[in-house]
């Protein structure tokens, strides 16, 4: 008898069956509704930052440390999808070398076209993992501008990972995420220029009221990791969400909602064929919601 219902998959996953957990997450990702009990508040760390900063490698270190300390760690790594083919190359998993797969659960998730919005089912996946007993849930996303900050909506602790070798540390400043993060890890402290990068980030924050601490780490050598973990563990989660985060969360939710509108594909089509402008397209969607 094949027990493939969400209910039985959840029950099996609760008993530790990884395959059931994996299939359960697939169903959630594909839009199946799930009625999850909410007995536990999820502990969620969002890790974001520009590509190449070393997020995945750093997460490997964090997960390794926590799992050695008997914490069960689950990682959901979101990568962009191709706007043309819809496919995705999910390569974050390749960096997981130190952590023990028996203790650490890793799932690669394609944005599935949902850039700037929240990947379908992500919130349900997080709640499911939490209910199944995962102590630490890490969400990894690429942050290259306002578009990829959906992680802010689902995490109560935000870690920004930046580094010295991207040429222009000011990019992070421009994106505005510097002030929204709870902690900033300046990675690659083993490389020359890392101190200058740290200083540059700190200077960029010097006019904020409550700037996030900037911590130098090296995911390559492990330097500074324990300090970073201590900071993560002891910081106050932003459960209430500051105004800035509230705005971003709302906008991400709106974007996801708009994409689910039955008019969406037609409007996109009309814009692409030059029948209407994007402004007119937006008005059409607004009218639709107004009439609901």
């Amino acid at each position: 008898m094949e027990l493939n219902s969400i209910f039985s998959l959840f029950a099996n996953a609760k008993h530790g069956d990884r395959r059931s957990l994996a299939k359960l997450l697939t169903k959630i990702e594909n839009g199946e509704e799930i009625d999850i009990p909410t007995t536990k508040a999820a502990w969620v760390l969002g890790v974001t930052g520009p590509p190449g900063a070393g997020k995945s490698t750093l997460i490997d270190r964090l997960a390794s440390y926590w799992s050695e300390n008997r914490q069960r760690v689950a990682i959901l790594a979101v990568d962009p999808s191709s706007p043309i083919s819809g496919g995705a190359l999910l390569g974050d998993r390749a960096r997981m070398v130190h952590s023990n797969p028996a203790q650490v659960f890793f799932r690669s998730i394609s944005a599935r076209g949902n850039h700037g919005g929240i990947p379908n089912g992500l919130e349900d996946m997080i709640q499911t993992l939490s209910e199944l007993g995962w102590d630490r849930i890490i969400i990894e996303t690429v942050g290259v501008g306002q578009g990829e900050f959906a992680v802010i909506s689902v995490a109560d602790r935000i870690l920004l990972v930046d580094g010295p070798d991207r040429g222009d540390v000011l990019q992070a400043e421009k994106a505005g995420i510097l002030e929204i993060a709870d902690l900033i890890a300046c990675n690659k402290s083993d490389l020359p220029g890392s101190l200058a990068a740290m200083k540059s980030i700190e200077d960029g924050l010097s006019y904020s009221e409550n700037p996030p601490p900037v911590i130098g780490v090296s995911s390559l050598t492990g330097d500074g990791i324990e300090n970073l973990i201590h900071r993560i563990e002891t910081m106050e989660p932003d459960l209430g969400k500051s105004t800035a985060r509230a705005k971003i969360s709302l906008e991400c939710s709106m974007i996801s909602r708009i994409r689910k509108s039955p008019l969406y594909d037609d409007v996109v089509n009309d814009i692409s064929k030059n029948k209407i402008t994007s402004k007119e397209g937006a008005e059409r969607l607004e009218e639709y919601y107004g009439r609901l």
């Binding site: 496919g87 995705a88 998993r93 797969p101």
Partner: peptide, 29 residues
């Protein structure tokens, strides 16, 4: 190429043991 063909591709990285590869395929469904 598979990504361009519309698939979601999980690349394991180098030097994986058979056990690791199977665990990855299992966890990624």
């Amino acid at each position: 190429a598979l990504r361009d063909g519309g698939h979601e591709v999980i690349y394991t990285g180098l030097r994986r043991t058979p056990e690791q590869i199977v665990a990855i395929a299992r966890d990624e469904d």
